[in-house]
Design a protein around this nucleic acid. Sequence first.
DNA 1: AGACCATAATCTAAGGTCCGAAGAAAGTCA
DNA 2: TGACTTTCTTCGGACCTTAGATTATGGTCT
Lengths: 399, 399
Amino acid sequence: MGTSGRRTVRDLRRGNRAMLLRALYFGGPASRNELSAATGLSPATVSTMTGDLLAEGVIAEAGQVDSDGGRPRVLLKVNPGYGYAVGVDVGETQVKVELFDLEMRERARAHYAVRSAKHDPELVARHILAGVDAVIAESEVPPERVLGVGVGVPGIVEPGPDALVRAKTFGWREVPLGALLRAGAAPSRPALPLYVDNGAKTMGQAELWFGSGRGTRDAIIVLMGSGVGGTVVTDGAIYRGAGKAAGEVGHLKIVAGGRACRCGARGCLEAYLGAEAILDRAGVVADSAEEESALARLLDADSPVIAESVELLGVGLSSLVHLFNPERIVIGGWAGLMLGGRLLDGIRAATAANTQAQPFQPESVVLGRLGPDAVALGAATLVLEPFFRGAALPAPAIA
Amino acid sequence: MGTSGRRTVRDLRRGNRAMLLRALYFGGPASRNELSAATGLSPATVSTMTGDLLAEGVIAEAGQVDSDGGRPRVLLKVNPGYGYAVGVDVGETQVKVELFDLEMRERARAHYAVRSAKHDPELVARHILAGVDAVIAESEVPPERVLGVGVGVPGIVEPGPDALVRAKTFGWREVPLGALLRAGAAPSRPALPLYVDNGAKTMGQAELWFGSGRGTRDAIIVLMGSGVGGTVVTDGAIYRGAGKAAGEVGHLKIVAGGRACRCGARGCLEAYLGAEAILDRAGVVADSAEEESALARLLDADSPVIAESVELLGVGLSSLVHLFNPERIVIGGWAGLMLGGRLLDGIRAATAANTQAQPFQPESVVLGRLGPDAVALGAATLVLEPFFRGAALPAPAIA
DNA sequence: AGACCATAATCTAAGGTCCGAAGAAAGTCA
DNA sequence: TGACTTTCTTCGGACCTTAGATTATGGTCT
């Protein structure tokens, strides 16, 4: 029995204000009247609140709509220039730093190649810091308008100001990325709030906000690339669990005592279904640069390994359905899109075969709409989330 | 992005009042001052609020505690006689109806034997209705003080006023238990709010409130009896998902393409780990009345099937850890307690072997504290939940 | 015993929030 | 031009929580 209690009457205001902001952000431009209907707040409250928000520059007018025989509605929208967010994708071959406005239009980018298998944490931190400076400079955005920096990395991220990262693929055992960034930051720029999370989670959040997950409150986003990751959404937000390590879809077990996974355990989804694992099971040798074409060939060849993969994915999804009963399951990541693009019906059928009819609708399994580049976009949304939740932005300021 | 927004200033009051009530209920007797500290509300607010609650009879004084050199504190507690809840356990062999006060002390009970394999829905409904009348009469509780009736049944329960129940063990395909109860209710008694849920969920809620799950906000309760059920707790409340069918731990898959489960799929946890499945795997034939002693013999004999079961349970728990990252895992149900009572360390080790060290603490796996009889108790807590959440009790009144 | 102190609970005034109702604004239509 | 329609704003009222002062209720010291 929990549900932390709001306290004072000002929290009420904050919450309602955030609700209004969300309605405006996700519900497109809207008039005050429409906002009143959408939020359940009285027109009077909406009026005063939008007055404040306009004065602060958070929202702006967005034209008029004349209705037959009445005062025309003034449309409002979130002011895209009110704030900016930087998203960082720390990938296998590149560190991508991108700056977005509130409407998530990209305003600048800076990419840095990283020599494979040489992911020196300090080098990565330097790339990030340089990239942040570069995109702010290139976009000519006033630095004080930058609301924060979100970083998507592989592996598990331990919450806290140090943002300890464990990423086996990089050989990172306990890299304090937060501390590294703080240490390397130029003291000239104002400190920026920093958010670090698993790249699959940031990508999942991107699909949730702007992709195929849009509008759902309970969803699961499964991301298959070289490995398998995922995001579990409950009640409209990423579910993180007690120690912020929940949602590790890739390590759901599907075969007790099965294939060894790089995590050390056996029978994980990732030991069967990442591109790497699929190719390995098919006996194909391919280094990471060739994975994509090799997987495509396997698909063209109608390999029995592919059919088996579809079956196994169905088993995994069935577990997820029984545990989470989501409204929607989104399959993304480059390998997921490749597989799902051709075999979505098979995946749906395999899931249904392992699931009781009651909670499962085959059509609830859909493909992602955003490409693999959405990691940085999603990382940037981490910055925006507290903004739209009504927090007064007290992140562990760093960078 | 969700988080439904409270609206007016009165919701604030309701929420704070519920928070105070929870602090008092779960935090034992406490003085106004202590409540102020526990809830974060000012002493003034606590004072006026407790004044109201005392006047309404919801809470009562519970003695004094004199502190050194000051005015003694007056202790307050929830008034156990303010309201009563009826809990019903629709089991394989019996329909148990029990009446509890707010402190969950049993005040009366009425049990009805059901001839095995003959679970006529209408008969069950008649037993429930008769039982409700009987316990109210026997306990001599004023009928208007009864806050509602909670029913725990096997299978999946579809929410809504009809409370459609699908229970394969009973051969129930779409039994509208809610409608049956409404139809059969004597018009003399005032209509009681009705809550129907899966028996494993009600038992899980009992463990959460009064057993080994107490105090946690993210927990998983796995219940092994003849079959396997469970409850997932997130944020202090049972997680139910989009269609209220989440948390079906028994149908988590652990072996792709494995043993057939009675649900129709293959490789479910329940196909390996319920008492029925364990005995079947060991080649033991036992009808449901003999299951308990047969399983005990298997344990005594140190059967390899038991060792294998521990291993498989570890695989299942590992999936749950990676997906939910719970603070605690409670193992309950009669078979679970029997297995875990002797082999808890083995279960912990098996889970750890399949789980990355990071999110998992072996000690977080514990045994349930409540016996198998807790289904009715848990069902009764369903009635109390809205009370402690601050709802104005608008349940689908029935029964 | 009586004065003084310490802690608990209550009272009062003030600052906020939302809502309903009435009024102002900005058009259309005849 | 005037009536009508629809959108938005303003104002007074009902509530809520808080801070600070006040009252209640005991112990302790001389």
